[in-house]
């Protein structure tokens, strides 16, 4: 019962997210809007109930399970993009390496400099 109550909260926020997406015409998925709304609600309340924490932990632990069926489809389109894969793979390998490096480097630099500022205050 406890898990169901938490699950209901998550589903309701998902539906609210979908409502916001459709009514405001946003190109963002209902899940993400629901996530943002849930986070803000929790911040306003200042606490999270045990049932919601429990339900969300359960769902997050099976996140990989939920993505898997979509990933299976990839193996059935390999032929369809025959001839494009070299480009796709080179672009993804080099592009991802560069963007990971950029992200880590930027985060490191900016957090070091803001930590430095704080210690001077």
């Amino acid at each position: 019962m406890v898990l169901l109550r938490g699950f209901l909260v998550l589903v309701v926020f998902f539906l609210l997210g979908e409502a916001l997406r459709v009514l405001a015409g946003l190109p963002v998925s209902g899940g993400v809007l629901g996530m943002v709304m849930a986070t803000f609600t929790l911040m306003l309340r200042g606490q999270v109930s045990d049932e919601l924490a429990e339900a969300s932990r359960g769902l997050i632990s099976v996140l990989v399970l939920l993505i898997t069926p979509g990933v299976v489809g990839v193996f059935f389109i390999v032929d369809q993009f025959y001839g494009h894969w070299t480009t796709v793979i080179v672009a993804l390998i080099a592009g991802t390496l560069l963007s990971v490096l950029t992200t880590l480097w930027l985060m490191k630099k900016v957090s070091e400099s803001s930590a430095g500022e704080n210690s001077h205050e």
Binding site: V11, F13, F14, E18, G31, M35, A38, V48
Partner: peptide, 19 residues
Amino acid sequence: WLTVLLGPATVALGVPLYQ
């Protein structure tokens, strides 16, 4: 039947975010 749960699972990410 499983992938529809991705919606609420995305919402669930808001909880660790808050914590």
